[in-house]
Amino acid sequence: MKRERATAVLVEMLDRLEQGAWPLNLVEEIHLFGSYARGALEVGDVDVVVEHATDARWTRESLDAFCDGRDSYVTMRQALRGRRRGVSFQFQERKALESEGIDLSLLWRRGEPVVTARQRLAALTPDPAAGRAPRDHVLPSYEAIADLLPRPVRIDLHRLCTEGAVTVAAFSLPDAWPTSARAAAHVQGRWALNSPLRRAAAAALARLESTGQALERVEVHGQHLVYGTADEAVDCFVDLGWRYWRSAERYLDDGQAWFEVLPATARQPLHALHVTPVALA
C-alpha cells in the first residue's frame, strides 16, 4: 500500500474519532508503529495500538462475544476504520509492545484536540530509506502469507508451533464449490450471492472435501454444517477472516483442526491456514 493511501486511512480514522460516538468515546490513546511510523513509502498494513477504557455496554457485549466464541473487538475495529482495509489494530498492547523494545509514536491521547493528532500525523515525514519493517513471530510454515496475519495471530501461531502443539500449512485457496449437496445448500442458504463470506466458505469446504474430510463433521463460521451435530463430533472449524480466532486454541486443545480463510473478500485472491493439532498430524 502506498504511503499516501495509508495516510488517508489514518485521516479518516481521526475524523471518526473526533465524532466521539460509542465505542470510540472509550478510546484513551492511539499509537503508531512499524513501517508507516518509520516513514516507509510502501507499507503492508498500518500498525496501530489502541488503548481504551470500558463501560457497562462494552463489558456486556464483550462477554456475549466471548461466550459465543466471537471477536469482541469487531465493533471497535469497524468504528475506527469504517469500510477501509489496511490497518492492523493492537488493542491494549502498549505495555507489551514497549516491553519488547518496539518504538511507538503517539498519535492521540484523551484530552487532546484531534487537531493535535493531525499535526503529529503530518510530522511523520516519508523516508525512502526506511523500507518495510520485518515481521516478527514468523516461521517458515506461514512466512509466505505473514503480511496477511495480524500480529496477535502471528504470536499465537509462533507459540503453538514452537511448543510443538500444532502444525501449520499455508496455501493459496482457489475459488471452488463443494460437491456435497448439503454443504452447497448450507452456503447458498446462509449468505447472499455477492457476499465475500459465501465465496470464502465455499472455497474452504471444497478444499476440505478434496482432502477427504467428512463435511458433516465441520463447523462453518460458528454453525454446524449438519444441524444438531454435537460439539465433540466436530473435526474442523472453518473461520472466515479471523472472526472466531480467539476460540481457536480451545478447539485445538480438544483435538479439532482449524481452517482459516484470509482475507474473506469479494475479489482478492484467497489464502488459507490449516492448523492441525500434532496428535492429528
Rank of each mutant, 00 (worst) to 15 (best):
L139C: 07
D253P: 00
V46G: 05
Q268C: 00
D103N: 06
A122S: 11
R154W: 00
H221D: 14
Q92F: 02
D253K: 15
A202Q: 03
T276C: 14
L215C: 04
S99K: 15
E163C: 08
A170I: 04
L160H: 04
R81M: 12
R3C: 09
R109D: 01
A122K: 12
V153K: 01
A123P: 08
L107G: 09
L41W: 06
P263E: 02
V226G: 02
Q19C: 04
R182I: 11
M1L: 14
A248T: 11
H271C: 01
V115Q: 13
L124N: 06
G241P: 08
A53T: 05
A204W: 03
A37W: 05
W245K: 06
G44P: 03
S72T: 09
R151W: 08
N25V: 01
V278L: 15
R84V: 07
E18Y: 02
Q119R: 15
A185R: 14
Y73C: 06
V50N: 07
R83D: 15
A8D: 14
Q92V: 06
W245G: 00
S141V: 10
R38Y: 03
Q90Y: 06
A176I: 10
K95R: 14
T162A: 00
V138P: 02
A56L: 06
K95N: 08
A206Y: 06
A202G: 05
F66W: 13
P128D: 03
G164D: 07
A146S: 12
V153W: 01
A206K: 02
G131R: 10
V153P: 00
R199T: 09
P277R: 13
A200P: 12
A201D: 07
E42Y: 10
P23R: 11
D156F: 03
L41D: 10
